[in-house]
């Protein structure tokens, strides 16, 4: 047998570590460092300006930023339970339907559409035309057909427009969530469900007492994935409202500070906040993998 020398593992881990250092650790450290400096010109020019905690104060006190932070919380609070819940219900219900494959495919299609594409589609759905002109948006066409007044949906702040943006996210991600739940549901041994039915449980009790506990690990994985997706939400907001009318989110603000205002320091501070928000969920995911024996 070949004797393992101390340096042997490094040969295998080394390249991965190098790549990680270069593409993750270095940018992360540089971003944190930059978050204490002024805008781009000041960072690279002759007047390098250390601004202390000013960028951080901005992140947590500027009204647009606090609005963005609150909206991100709203996205997490609405988007996550709805995608997880709808995905679960659809998976269990469609299991009993004859045309399951077709229906599941239809519901899954939005997951294959890019964020930008989906956002453009939904902009048309929410489109507004003045009273009296023919409505080109499906939603307003329905409202008018039912005798209502057309609404400028995306400017109805702050609840309607934010919830309508979140609805686009839900439309994109529910299919994904459903497919994962469906796979997990089909892995539940049928005899378990049979046994509970023979013991006299009705369908609701079977779902509540047997199916749900067995799907719990899946729900956790899907839930964490959804939270990670939604905290980074950018494209939908960028395309549909660009954060106007109180729909700003953290990632869109970061983009504006960086590429529109060239304020590298602030954009970096926002990026770090986004990273910090994501870390707990990353840890959760790693722990779960470890618990399942995937990682020692």
């Amino acid at each position: 047998m070949l004797k393992t020398k101390k340096w042997h593992p490094w040969v295998f881990v080394g390249p991965a570590l190098l790549i990680l250092t270069f593409f993750f650790v270095y940018p992360a450290v540089a971003t944190i460092w930059r978050s204490f400096y002024g805008s781009g010109q000041e960072l690279f020019g002759p007047n390098v300006r250390h601004v202390g905690l000013a960028n951080w104060r901005y992140v947590f006190t500027n009204p647009t930023m606090t609005r963005a932070l609150r909206n991100n919380a709203l996205w997490v609070g609405v988007f996550t339970p709805v995608t997880v819940g709808l995905g679960l219900i659809l998976a269990v219900l469609l299991d009993r339907v004859k045309y399951e494959r077709v229906l599941k495919s239809i519901i899954f299609v939005p997951a294959a559409i890019s964020y930008v594409g989906a956002s453009i589609i939904w902009r048309f759905v929410y489109a507004y035309r003045p009273v009296g002109l023919s409505q080109i948006g499906v939603l307003n066409a329905l409202v008018v057909a039912l005798g209502g007044e057309p609404q400028g949906w995306l400017i109805l702040r702050p609840w309607v427009n934010n919830l309508l943006l979140i609805a686009v996210g839900i439309w994109i991600w529910t299919g994904f969530s459903m497919v994962i739940f469906s796979a997990a549901y089909k892995n539940i041994p049928r005899d378990l469900l049979e046994a509970s039915r023979i013991d006299g449980a009705n369908e609701f009790q079977v779902f509540r007492r047997v199916t749900l506990p067995l799907l719990r690990p899946t729900a956790e994985v899907v839930g964490v994935t959804m939270v990670v997706q939604v905290l980074k939400v950018f494209d939908i907001v960028y395309v549909m409202t660009n954060g106007n009318y109180e729909t700003e989110v953290v990632a869109n603000r970061m983009y504006k500070e960086m590429f529109n205002f060239f304020n590298y320091g602030r954009a970096s501070a926002i990026a770090v906040v986004l990273l910090l928000m994501l870390i707990p969920f990353m840890i959760l995911n790693v722990r779960r993998l470890a618990g399942q024996g995937g990682v020692q």
Partner: peptide
């Protein structure tokens, strides 16, 4: 369309 028309 009023102000909503201008915005949209």
């Amino acid at each position: 369309g009023g102000p909503v028309g201008a915005l949209t």
